[in-house]
């Protein structure tokens, strides 16, 4: 579902956030410092800082619905990935470099648009939980008339 080119875009270090909803259809969200697309592009794992994960994990366990938004501040290229919850576990120590590398990429993006990178380094990116999702739909969110159009 996610091809190689899109996977490269999603994993370069972007502004990533996950949105979920409760049983009462109230939205919840969490910051995602990193994402990893699995081979074949049908699944991805997103890393959510444990400190901010409670609400979204409760929602995912309750109804499984997720909507991730990926954006590159430098040029506003953005896309939304809809997915269904598969599983959650604690992120392993060997996954920490991936999280830190993508987070550094996002910091660099912030510097490009004029926000000193040092200022966001206090954000908590570890420890994380690793949330595995099955990809169900992809949409463009780059500003313009095609925003919201399916990518496939």
């Amino acid at each position: 579902m996610i091809d190689d080119a899109l996977a490269a875009f999603l994993q370069q270090g972007l502004a990533i956030n996950i949105g979920t909803r409760s049983a009462r259809l109230e939205p919840h969200a969490a910051y995602v410092p990193a994402a990893r697309v699995e081979s074949g592009g049908t699944h991805l794992t997103v890393f959510v800082p444990r400190i901010g994960a409670d609400d979204v994990l409760a929602d995912l366990r309750e109804n499984g619905q997720a909507a991730l938004v990926f954006a590159r501040p430098e040029d506003d290229r953005a896309c939304q990935v809809k997915g269904v919850f598969e599983s959650v576990r604690d992120a392993r120590g060997d996954e920490r470099p991936l999280v830190e590398t993508q987070y550094a990429g996002f910091m660099h993006q912030l510097e490009i648009i004029g926000t000193p990178g040092e200022s966001s380094r206090a954000w908590v990116i570890w420890p994380c939980v690793a949330v595995r999702l099955e990809v169900t739909a992809l949409f463009s969110q780059t500003p313009g008339p095609d925003a919201g159009a399916p990518l496939r």
């Binding site: 996950i18 997720a66 939304q80």
Partner: peptide, 12 residues
């Protein structure tokens, strides 16, 4: 946001 059918949506 969230649709009436329960599908969440995230946007910039």
């Amino acid at each position: 946001t969230c649709a009436a059918d329960g599908t969440p949506n995230s946007a910039y």
